[in-house]
Structures are given as C-alpha cells and as structure tokens.
C-alpha cells in the first residue's frame, strides 16, 4: 500500500473513526439490526473500523489471512446483513476522503490520491462480498443436498412390493432422480409392484404427469408394475382438464387401496385373524 496514504490515514485515525461511527449509526434502523443491544452494536462498530484502518498497512496477500476475514466470518455466523458491511465500507471511504482532503493541503483535488483510496477500499469490498456470497452458496449447496436426500426414497413394504412417497414440487432434476432411484430400487428389492404415492405433490401439471408416465414406463421395462396412488379430487380434475392420458397404467385414490391391489397382483391378500 502506498506509504503516503498509509501515513495520512494513520495520522487521522481518530477523526476518521469518529466520523465513521457517526455516519454508520444513522443506518442502524434500516439494517434490521434493531434487536441487537446498543453495547454490542457499538463494540462491533468499533472493532470493524479499527480493523479497517489497520488494513491500510497490509498487502493484498496479507489481507486474505487478516483478522478482517475472521471478523466477517463472525458477522456471517451471527447473521448480520451484508448491507451492514457494504454500507460501512462506503461510509468509511467517504470519511477517509473527506477528512484527509480537508486536513492535508497538498493532497487536495489530487486524482491520484482518490484513486489510491478507491483501490484500497475496493479490494476490501471485493474480499468481503466474496466471503459473504461464498457462505451463502455453501448454505444453498448444503440445503440442496439435504433436499436431495429427502427427495425420492423407495420403501419396501412387503415382499415384492415397494412404495415411493413423493412430497413437494417435482422439477426435471428431481424427476430424473426419482426415475433412477425407482429403477435401482426395483432391481435391489426385486419388487414386482411399485406404488408411487403423489398425495404430497401439490400440483400435477403436464410436465409432472409426463415425468410420472415416463418413470412408470421405465419401471415396466425393467419388469415391474407401477401403480399411481394418492390422487386427490383436485388432482383428478386437473389431469382430466389438461387432457393427460393416464389410462395406460392403474391408478388408485389412496395408498391403502393401492396396496390391496398390489397384493392381489402378487396373489396375496390381507385376512383378519379369527380369535
């Protein structure tokens, strides 16, 4: 970092800090930070500005392992908005430029000087935004994985009979997963009949129906039967209104009826015990 700037910033450290703290406190109400105690807020502000001022002495490489990163990671963990960071840095830049250009005669209106300050702050902005978005991407990824695990389980309920309960919206990616799990599961459990339960699927449009039809065709090819169960009245209405032809494979209104007909297909039945 340019030594001139470094000296100037360090020299006017107190003024910059004061000015920044004054500006940042104005934003407190719209940053969704009201429920944080005053003391905590002030301490964090103070820590933030001190770390920021210290970064002027560091090179870019050093920045990446700086306590700034640790500080931001702490903020991410306790859930402070990115807004706070970007606004804080904008105000910090304003404070630096204002105070230094007021106090130092020779740097007044010097374009080079402004550029130096900009470079310095912009690097920090980039670093911190990357840090934040990285943590978000990570969260999204973990949630996606969790969703995927819950997405399409195939449960063997009787010998040769398995059930796949589907809950939630079905998109193309999930439909692919459903088909794979379905086929692998059929082979693994040696199922003759598979029940696909769509009780938990909120909307069945042409795309979803298409995926379900494809899955059941594929199941038939590997040598099992597919029964679609859990068709609610509103789903039945949409299916007919959309003109989707489900005539080729059996459908039942509830899982219970589906299981009964699956048992029938495998030459079994449920009988009550006589006491």
């Amino acid at each position: 970092m340019n030594s001139v700037i470094k000296d100037m910033v360090l020299e006017h450290k107190e003024d910059i800090t004061d000015s920044w703290l004054k500006e940042i406190s104005k934003f407190r109400s719209d940053d969704m930070l009201q429920n944080i105690s005053d003391k905590m807020y002030e301490n964090t502000n103070l820590e933030f500005v001190n770390i920021l001022i210290l970064t002027v002495q560091k090179t870019n490489e050093e920045l990446e392992h700086d306590e700034l990163i640790q500080f931001v990671e702490k903020l991410i963990q306790i859930g402070w908005p990115l807004n706070y960071i970007t606004r804080g840095l904008q105000e910090f830049r304003k404070a630096c430029v204002e105070i230094i250009s007021n106090r130092e005669e020779n740097s007044h209106n010097n374009l080079e000087f402004f550029k130096k300050i900009e470079d310095w702050i912009d690097d920090i902005v980039n670093l911190l935004v990357t840090q934040y978005s990285g943590s978000w991407e990570n969260t999204v990824f973990l949630q996606k994985m969790a969703l995927k695990e819950l997405s399409a389980p195939l449960i063997p309920v009787f010998e040769n009979i398995s059930v796949m309960p589907l809950i939630g919206t079905i998109d193309t990616e999930r439909a692919k997963l459903i088909m794979e799990n379905l086929l692998e599961g059929v082979i693994e459990h040696r199922s003759q009949v598979v029940l696909i339960d769509i009780t938990g699927v909120p909307v069945v449009d042409t795309m979803v129906a298409h995926h379900i039809i494809q899955a059941s065709e594929a199941v038939r090819l590997v040598g099992a039967k597919c029964i679609l169960v859990g068709i609610r009245p509103e789903i039945a209405q949409t299916i007919v209104n959309l003109g989707i032809d489900l005539g080729k494979f059996p459908t039942k209104s509830t899982l219970k009826k589906g299981i009964e007909s699956a048992l029938e297909l495998t030459q079994r039945e449920i009988v009550e015990l006589k006491k």
Binding site: Q192, L221, G223
Partner: peptide, 28 residues
C-alpha cells in the same frame, strides 16, 4: 417375455421415446 432390462437401458429407451408397448417384461 423380455427380462432383466437394466435401469440405464430403460432410461435410454424412454428418453428415445421407445416404449415397447405390448411387450411383457419381468425382473429376471
């Protein structure tokens, strides 16, 4: 009767739009 069609094969066939409509199938 066609038997033992692998999942990957089934998926390819379905993707190509070949449904082998009236062909009986079995697991093994």
């Amino acid at each position: 009767v066609l038997t033992g069609i692998q999942p990957a094969v089934a998926i390819t066939l379905i993707d190509m739009g070949i449904v082998l409509d009236d062909v009986p199938t079995a697991l093994d």
